[in-house]
Design a protein around this nucleic acid. Structure first.
Lengths: 358, 358
DNA sequence: ACCAGATGTGACACCGGTATCATAAATAAA
DNA sequence: TTTATTTATGATACCGGTGTCACATCTGGT
């Protein structure tokens, strides 16, 4: 906490009131836009406020009304275009409803997420929009809800949490991606994510805290099952957090047997890293390897070939999430709603026929 | 069924105090971490607070102390990686100092910027970090400063504003870019920006509100002058706000005579649009046209050839800006400082020798 | 044992608004 | 004209913390 400024006491309603020769109550009514006031009083007060340069103190207002015009947002990483676009959707919608937005990063770590939620609750935000980093640790969100602060989860979801959720249809899109790949002859597909884990590999979807990723993996298993392909084991590569680590993953992928013929990138950052690692190693897309990335980032249309993507309209995610939250703030107490937003596959140029296995 | 209608009277220090059998004042001292308290009292209060699940109200705290733990940030567009990276730098630094961050978008429009600044001041933010959209309209920032709220400008700067500034060294980097291009034989270079203007073309740097862009143009003029090249007229193309508009600009550029042989993109979004428009039209980089983009976005290393860029380390911009602001909040009243951060040219693959003019 | 200084504690005013209520003035109804 | 209603206004108690101050209690020095 830091000293706010010089002790220069800002103007208050009382100052305006005395300048306008009315009581504090009357000035407050005029300036706050509530209650009654005669035309003469109104004019006098507004004139005085204008002349003195009065600016209301929203802190004080929030204090006495009990409602704050703030909503809190906790995302994994604003730096990621996925989230910054969603945040833009949230901000635009919130602002239109007269709400301000405080944004925090969890860095996809549960301890930071807890901390940020706690800070936001202390700021008495009216509601929260959170992309929970671990679907198995939601107690902080639950207690927010029980203490009366509505929560909307973004991109992620849990049946345990009585909150609205706005998500992509991850299971369905995963299935359609895998079916599309299977149609092109791919039988061994790996999923690469920046999620961290000890071993660098994951087999069971239960081990995945981010629900969106878990659902995709479940989708793959379902699609494999349907196609009569033995469920792939340890098909998830984790820790693709930078170019170096992603390079090592690509090396492992290329050494795998039976040969992996297609890669799925969990988000556009991972997608870009994979693309760079593959092209650096002389792997040609899509001849030697197919690639599909989640999120239609800007860069996916400057490569040649252009990247095939699962298009997640996250601005819309943000809009919808803010809209749900605003409904709740207006008193809607109906059952929590899970809003599934379609995320269609846009097959540009990086899905080709599977190379023949040896 | 959850009863949402319960009046959510949150816990207060008074509640904790009575549960711990001490006075409100003592409980407040313990919980607020100020003043004196005996070990027994402290333990009783903390135990009671823990048991009841007390959470302090930062609004009330800010109200009575006069200091708020919030800083306001106004950027052109969080969606733009340039700013989202800077915002991350700001957030990380601010958080480490116990400050929270409210982020707003101005959409590079002065009316919105004014509105956002006003909203933030009403929230009684302790300080502001702003990327002012028009160096000629700064009255709202000036009045913030005179009313005691310190301001740091980000990426932009004006001699009229008594505020710290953290900027790239736009003039110098523009000169070095142009000299580099001149060394490769380029004499006719166009600058393309998403800034909007009526005519679509600009000649005079005075017409440019965004100081960073103005300084670059001044740098070009200086570099041209130095090289004995007649100062280019109307070398700035505006309104490159989307792919369609950028395509039209590229058409105009290609029709220009004498032939324009190099393009400069004002930011990475414009850069991506130019790249797409050029490759769509079959223009080969760098054989037919050279391209340099400001900001080293992720996508600049997935194209072939990779894009030559002016590297603006905006995370650092954000960090430095937050650090300056925190110093001010701690009471530093020395002269405003303008911090210039080097933005070196990274010449990857899109600068080639100028094609011979006909 | 006695007083100085340090330590602990509670009562209460304050921050800048909002909201309630009683009263005063203006208007309508009887 | 009198009473009932509406409209306008000011006094004042909040909201949930902080911070001042007076008083009480506990040291310790001589």
């Amino acid at each position: 906490m830091v000293d706010m400024s010089t002790k220069k006491s800002r103007l208050t309603v009382a100052d305006v009131a005395s300048a306008a020769n009315v009581s504090k109550a009357t000035a407050a009514r005029v300036l706050g836009g509530y209650g009654l006031a005669s035309e003469t009083a109104r004019k006098a007060v507004l004139e005085a406020a204008e002349r003195l340069g009065y600016q209301p103190n929203d802190l004080a207002r929030s204090m006495s009304t009990g409602r704050s015009g703030l909503i809190g947002v906790v995302v994994g990483d604003i730096e990621n275009a996925f989230f910054s676009l969603a945040v833009r959707g949230i901000s635009d919608t919130a602002r239109a409803a007269g709400l301000n937005v405080i944004i925090s990063n969890s860095s996809e770590q549960i301890t930071e997420e807890r901390e940020m939620v706690s800070v936001l609750l202390r700021q008495r935000v009216a509601g929260l929009i959170v992309a929970p980093t671990d679907a198995r640790q939601l107690d902080h969100l639950k207690s927010a809800i029980t203490s009366g602060v509505p929560v909307v989860t973004l991109d992620r979801w849990s049946p345990d949490l009585p909150a609205d959720a706005v998500c992509g249809d991850d299971r369905a899109s995963a299935i359609s991606v895998l079916q599309h790949l299977q149609g092109a002859g791919h039988r061994h597909v790996a999923y690469v994510t920046a999620m961290t884990s000890r071993s660098g590999r994951l087999a069971a979807p239960e081990d995945v805290g981010i629900s969106a990723v878990r659902e995709r993996i479940e989708g793959f298993l379902a699609a494999s099952d349907q196609a009569g392909i033995p469920p792939p084991r340890q098909m998830v590569f984790t820790n693709a957090t930078d170019d170096a680590a992603t390079g090592r993953i690509v090396d492992k992928v290329l050494a795998e047997s039976p040969r992996i013929t297609a890669l799925l990138a969990s988000d556009s950052l991972v997608g870009a890293r994979l693309f760079r690692a593959l092209t650096n190693r002389g792997v040609r897309l899509p001849r030697d390897m197919s690639l599909v990335s989640w999120f239609d980032a800007d860069w996916t249309r400057v490569t040649s070939p252009q990247i095939s993507v699962v298009d997640q309209p996250t601005y819309l995610f943000g809009q919808r999430a803010a809209e749900r939250l605003i409904r709740r703030l207006k008193g809607d107490t109906t059952e929590p709603l899970r809003l599934l937003i379609p995320t269609p596959l846009i097959d540009r140029g990086t899905v080709g026929p599977a190379p023949r296995c040896l």
